[in-house]
Simulated assay, not measured.
Amino acid sequence: MSMQAHVAELERRHEALDKALREETARPASDEVRVNDLKRRKLYLKDEIARLKGTLH
Rank of each mutant, 00 (worst) to 15 (best):
residue 18 D to R: 14
residue 47 D to C: 10
residue 53 K to N: 04
residue 25 T to E: 13
residue 56 L to C: 04
residue 41 R to Y: 01
residue 12 R to C: 05
residue 20 A to C: 01
residue 29 A to S: 09
residue 2 S to I: 03
residue 19 K to C: 07
residue 7 V to Q: 06
residue 19 K to R: 15
residue 46 K to S: 04
residue 27 R to H: 11
residue 37 D to K: 12
residue 27 R to K: 15
residue 28 P to F: 08
residue 1 M to F: 01
residue 47 D to L: 08
residue 27 R to P: 00
residue 13 R to D: 12
residue 11 E to P: 03
residue 55 T to L: 15
residue 28 P to S: 06
residue 21 L to H: 09
residue 35 V to R: 04
residue 11 E to H: 10
residue 4 Q to F: 09
residue 28 P to I: 04
residue 23 E to L: 11
residue 41 R to P: 00
residue 19 K to N: 14
residue 31 D to S: 09
residue 47 D to H: 12
residue 15 E to I: 06
residue 12 R to I: 03
residue 10 L to Y: 11
residue 8 A to M: 15
residue 57 H to S: 05
residue 3 M to S: 13
residue 43 L to H: 09
residue 57 H to K: 06
residue 52 L to K: 07
residue 22 R to M: 10
residue 51 R to I: 02
residue 14 H to Q: 15
residue 54 G to A: 01
residue 15 E to S: 13
residue 35 V to T: 09
residue 17 L to W: 05
residue 6 H to R: 15
residue 43 L to W: 01
residue 22 R to Q: 14
residue 40 R to I: 03
residue 1 M to G: 12
residue 33 V to P: 00
residue 28 P to K: 07
residue 32 E to L: 11
residue 1 M to H: 10
residue 56 L to I: 12
residue 40 R to D: 08
residue 32 E to V: 09
residue 49 I to L: 02
residue 20 A to E: 12
residue 21 L to P: 08
residue 22 R to Y: 04
residue 41 R to F: 01
residue 36 N to T: 08
residue 7 V to F: 01
residue 24 E to S: 05
residue 27 R to E: 13
residue 49 I to H: 05
residue 43 L to E: 07
residue 8 A to T: 13
residue 20 A to K: 13
residue 49 I to P: 05
